[in-house]
Design a protein around this nucleic acid. Structure first.
Lengths: 337, 337
DNA sequence: GTTAAAATCCGAAACGTTTCGGATCGACTA
DNA sequence: TAGTCGATCCGAAACGTTTCGGATTTTAAC
């Protein structure tokens, strides 16, 4: 591994000059610069980012803490699409991503904050975390590096968040069902430790109330954001609320579970029950019947998160919040009563 | 940011002692160690991994070069599952992952090798690369750090590869069709710059020949591993080879495309045409009809890649190749003639 | 020819660790 | 009592850069 010293020696100049030549400073003669570059190429020199970081305090690295990078997350490739967005924008802006493996099997579970601090990332993006995550609080409070949270509405001097408008999205979904003539509309919500669950519920409630219906708490079930959870919740609905004609699921995965239950029970979607999801995951347009849903632009979520974080890092913005729009995608799983 | 020096000063010992105390060396008095740890905690010290790496030459970081981390890759979450496997195993073994954004939009496109060298990763895992990738060769030849390739059969002192057995897998698929009585079996292959294409073709050929049939080159089409490519290829098959009763696709995505074409043309799967895919992506079990396919354990691919790389890094193995088994998953898209 | 300004270069410190080669000291051995 | 040993500690160098402050040389202006 050739170092800057080797170049200096071989080119007959000081390390200072080599450094400045290679980094494009203008107080070095073009002739010398040419020579230095030549020598560098000859030695197939490549700068040592570690050493550079040590003095510059910059790593051009963003920490990624994404809890859904696991086998289960492969179904809805939610985390994946977010990751793609982050990766693309970070790449364009010349930052690299450090993926922390927050593996529960690790005995010495280090906090995200420690991980990031140790590795000197300049900022971090957190996604897929529950509100009651033990370490979430720490990174926010410690406030030692900028971070942006996806789907967790906390802001501060150093912390921003990006999300899509869950409340409006949910309201759109429910209004769609209302327009189709449904009146008894159940909801299969995600677990309580996600702010999107709360938002989607309030969207559901608001849409109902705006058309003069009361939101019946007995019609709201917990599907834990999983396919099995959705399936189970659907059973509950069928048993306890046989008058329900449509169900709004806070995620496509749960909608898929719900449809599985309906199929098992011999009910047809959408003839016997309308089902609408949330997210528009890939499967939504392949399953049968194709799922009507609220599309969330997951890629954009990541893209904007990276943009926002880097803007914060480079002190280009005071914005601490980005809210994306959603879109109703009508397919085959809902029908007019 | 408290440093080791601050601790030394406050605890009234030398930096050396602090370092050794914190790192568990046994030539430090337990009483002093306790005190030092206390001071460290008081100052909420966290070690600077950058400085540490500079001297130790170890970063405990693995470079990841995955070309499919992009929007298109979200359909089959292939890269994602591989990533999960890598992430899990790397986490268990206490390595972090550095995700390089090989963004084509970058003007100064740096080679993977430079990226890795600069960042001092200890090794790298490459996935989703085409055989003719301009930079692939470089990292292999330069040989400066261990790396493992996924689905690219190159090995060397410092380079290993993991893959699933495409040839046997393809043969399984074709034999399944043969057992079902099909004789005119077309193949929609991926592009030529993937070694899996070559392997899957030879599996196809071998299976046919073993049952006394000649592999007709006219029945093999290029679907470029994309859904649209598969759709287009299917049109070609229908027009040029109307006697075909079954088609083996080298990826599920292409199979999906093929089925789309068949649907558009009004042909039923599997009544009019049997279709078998390869990969077993998530959608395969949700689409309609559900896709018969050869399951590849993508997670395991990543998991083993990480394991193998780290074994190489820590010089625990001479193994340079891992070949995983595949599995025939019979669903609804193939039928007995 | 003198002087000021520009152009070009360099020495040394600093970044935060680890580690090598001792140094110190009390206790134990012969 | 001298020598040895173990326990405990430390100074200084090293890792590969960047950068501050200045030094030297060249050029330009008068």
């Amino acid at each position: 591994m050739a170092t800057i010293k080797d170049i200096a020696r071989k080119a007959g100049v000081s390390v200072t000059t080599v450094s400045r030549a290679l980094n494009g400073y203008d107080d070095v003669n073009e002739e010398t610069r040419r020579k230095i570059k030549q020598v560098a190429a000859d030695l197939s020199y490549s700068p040592n980012a570690v050493a550079r970081s040590l003095v510059s305090k910059k790593t051009r690295t963003i920490g990624l803490i994404i809890s859904d990078i696991n086998r289960a997350g492969a179904k809805d490739a939610f985390a994946y699409e977010v990751l793609c967005g982050i990766n693309d924008r970070a790449g364009e802006l010349n930052y690299d991503l450090l993926l922390f493996s927050t593996n529960p099997s690790k005995q010495v579970e280090k906090s995200y904050a420690s991980l990031c601090k140790e590795r000197n990332v300049e900022g971090a993006i957190l996604s897929g975390l529950r509100l009651d995550d033990p370490y979430l609080h720490e990174v926010v409070e410690q406030n030692s590096f900028p971070c942006v949270l996806i789907d967790i509405p906390i802001t501060g001097a150093n912390v921003a968040h990006v999300a899509s408008d869950s409340k409006i999205g949910a309201a759109m979904a429910v209004r769609h069902l209302l327009e189709y003539g449904h009146r008894r509309i159940a909801m299969i919500n995600g677990h309580n430790q996600a702010s999107v669950s709360q938002d989607r519920y309030s969207g559901y409630k608001e849409a109902l109330e705006q058309s003069g219906l009361a939101a019946d708490p007995a019609l709201v079930y917990d599907g834990a954001f999983s396919e099995d959870g959705g399936a189970e919740a659907m059973y509950q609905i069928l048993i306890r609320n046989p008058d329900v004609t449509a169900v709004f699921c806070a995620s496509d995965l749960m909608a898929l579970g719900a449809m599985r239950t309906l199929e098992k029970v011999g009910l047809r979607v959408p003839e016997d029950m309308s089902v609408i999801g949330f997210d528009d995951i890939t499967i939504a347009s392949y399953c049968s019947p194709k799922l009507t849903t609220i599309r969330q632009d997951k890629y954009e979520l990541g893209y904007q998160a990276a943009q926002l974080l880097i803007d914060m890092l480079e002190e280009r913005t005071d914005n601490r919040k980005i809210l994306l729009g959603n879109q109703l995608i009508v397919r085959e799983s809902t029908r007019r009563l």
